[in-house]
C-alpha cells in the first residue's frame, strides 16, 4: 500500500511536469510560426488554434496533479518558525491538527469540484475559443488532483498518528 501510494503521487507529479513541458512546446511552436510568418510573409502565416486555451488547461493540469507530490516532497509553504520551538509532543499535536484541517478543507473542495464537473457535463459546457473543448475534460485534472491531495493528507495523518511523532519534513529546512 505504501509503495502503491508513493508511486501514485510520483506518477501524478510526472504528468504535471509533462504538462509544463507541453505548455513550453506549444508556445515555442507558435513563436516559431510567428518568426516564419515574419520571414516568409502572410502566405506562410499559421496559428495554432486556441493555443492560449490549451496552455491554460495544461497549466491547470500541472497545478492540480502536482499537489500531492509537492506535499509529500515538503515543498508546500508553511510557517514553521513557531511550531519548531515547541517540544516534540506539541509539534506532533500541531501536525495532527494541521493535517486534519487540511484534509477537511481539501476533501470539501474535492467534493464540490466533482459537483462542478458533473454540472459542466450535464449542461455540455464548452470553452469559448476557436476550438470548443468540453470543459469537463480539463476539469478532470482538478478533480483527480484535489482527490489525490486529500488522499495524501489523510495518508500522512495516519502515518503521523501511528508514528506518535511529527513526520512532515519541510523542503530545505535545517
Amino acid at each position: 500500500m505504501r509503495r502503491f501510494l508513493d508511486v501514485l503521487y510520483s506518477a501524478a507529479g510526472g504528468v504535471a511536469a509533462l504538462s509544463i513541458l507541453a505548455i513550453c512546446l506549444l508556445v515555442s511552436a507558435q513563436v516559431g510560426l510567428n518568426i516564419l510568418a515574419r520571414i516568409g510573409g502572410p502566405a506562410l502565416s499559421f496559428t495554432i488554434p486556441s493555443y492560449a486555451d490549451f496552455a491554460g488547461f495544461a497549466l491547470a493540469a500541472a497545478s492540480f496533479l502536482a499537489m500531492a507530490y509537492t506535499l509529500r516532497a515538503g515543498a508546500h509553504i508553511r510557517v514553521n518558525l513557531l511550531v519548531s520551538r515547541l517540544p516534540e509532543r506539541g509539534q506532533w499535536i500541531a501536525e495532527i491538527l494541521s493535517l486534519a484541517l487540511g484534509a477537511g478543507i481539501i476533501g470539501y473542495a474535492t467534493w464540490f469540484s466533482v459537483l462542478l464537473l458533473a454540472e459542466s457535463w450535464h449542461y455540455g459546457d464548452t470553452s469559448p475559443g476557436m476550438i470548443p473543448v468540453p470543459l469537463w475534460i480539463p476539469q478532470l485534472s482538478m478533480v483527480v488532483g484535489l482527490g489525490l491531495l486529500t488522499v495524501a493528507l489523510v495518508d500522512t495523518l495516519i502515518q503521523s498518528i501511528r508514528n506518535r511523532a511529527p513526520v512532515v519534513i519541510d523542503f530545505g529546512s535545517e
Binding site: 509553504i77 508553511r78 511550531v83 494541521s98 484541517l101 487540511g102 478543507i105 473542495a109
Partner: peptide
Amino acid sequence: LAAGVWVALSLMI
C-alpha cells in the same frame, strides 16, 4: 499559520 497549517490551506479555511 502559527499552528503550522500550510499557507494556502490557512487562506482557504
